[in-house]
Simulated scan of single mutants.
Amino acid sequence: MLETAHDDSAVLGSLLENPGCAIFLDFDGTLVDLAPTPDGVCLEKGVAEALALLAARHQGALAIISGRPVAQIDAMLAPLVLPVAGVHGVERRGADGQLHVAATPDVSPVLAQAQALAALHPGLLVERKRGAVALHYRLAPELEQLCVQQMTAAVQACPGVLLLHGKMVLEAKPAATNKGGAIAAFMTEAPFAGRRPVFAGDDTTDEAGFAFVEQAGGQGVKVGSGASAASLRLASPAALRAVLLAASSTPHKE
């Protein structure tokens, strides 16, 4: 497992300039810096334009792989529209524009528990998604143990639901879907099929994606600290944005 703090910006830049790669990018903590609340993130100037240029250079083989719903990613990137996997693969819009929605188990008991907990503690934020519930405790980190206990108990009573431990967030989601599966699905379709996958992410929720691309002969890129199955490392979202901006402005390789 990769743990050392080093920067593979040059290696990633070379990969992104290769016309044979397929680019997959997480959003929060990867393309954008984390914020106290999900609504507080900001996409820096020039990033959407860089993504558009890179997508064009790779014949459209660039997708966002996020825990956010597809509609939120579209709103953040507007007017740019890209292939997107949302809610860890529950929603997935291919390059052809078709939206695929996975079957989801009932998460209403988890939602009720999370809302009850948030009603008692104003620092907690509940986010309802298609087939998933996220409980954010970034504004109340001292409540982490309580949140873990309550959410774990709620998820154990819901068959087919898995609890993800992210950065100051706990997310109950369908066990049958993850970011690795979403990337795998993209890789069976044009224009991704036959290319070498490269996936950048920052959190434990991205590890399934790293595992898939590494096994498929591609490379995962861990943004930030922490052990990871990814073979490459970048220090921060700012480092990734710098690589994307540089790669998008480099003369195209045929």
Rank of each mutant, 00 (worst) to 15 (best):
V223L: 00
A185Y: 05
N178W: 08
L135Q: 05
K179R: 06
L232G: 02
V223E: 01
A184I: 10
E207Y: 13
A176Y: 11
T188V: 13
G194T: 13
L125Q: 09
Y137P: 00
L170A: 04
A140P: 03
G160C: 11
A114M: 01
L139E: 14
L111S: 12
D203V: 03
D202G: 14
F199M: 07
A112Q: 10
D206M: 07
Q156L: 13
V221K: 00
P191F: 11
T177L: 15
T177S: 15
F212E: 05
E144P: 03
E144F: 02
S228L: 03
V133Y: 07
L146A: 09
D206E: 07
A216D: 14
E189D: 13
P109W: 09
K179E: 05
V148I: 15
T152Q: 15
A229G: 09
G218L: 02
V107E: 06
A176T: 14
A172P: 11
R196Q: 15
Q149M: 08
G131D: 02
Q145E: 14
T204M: 13
P159A: 04
A185D: 14
R195C: 00
A134V: 01
G218A: 06
A153V: 03
K129V: 00
G123R: 06
H121G: 10
C147N: 12
G209N: 04
G217C: 09
H121T: 15
A134Q: 00
C147P: 02
G220K: 01
Q215S: 15
L124A: 09
P122E: 10
A172T: 09
A200G: 11
A208E: 14
A176I: 11
A208H: 14
G217Q: 06
F192S: 08
T177P: 13
P105L: 07
L117I: 12
L124M: 09
L117T: 08
V133C: 06
A229P: 03
A216E: 12
D206P: 08
V155F: 02
A230L: 02
A184V: 04
H121L: 13
E207A: 13
K129H: 04
A134W: 00
A216M: 12
H165T: 14
P122D: 08
A116N: 14
T205K: 02
A185V: 04
F199H: 05
A157N: 13
K173P: 09
V148N: 07
M187I: 02
V213W: 04
G123T: 05
Q149R: 08
Y137I: 00
F192I: 08
F210N: 06
T177Y: 12
R196H: 10
L164Q: 15
L232R: 00
A119K: 09
G217D: 13
E127L: 11
G224W: 00
L234K: 01
A132N: 05
A118E: 08
E127N: 07
A182D: 10
L125Y: 10
V213R: 06
K167F: 04
A176D: 14
L143H: 09
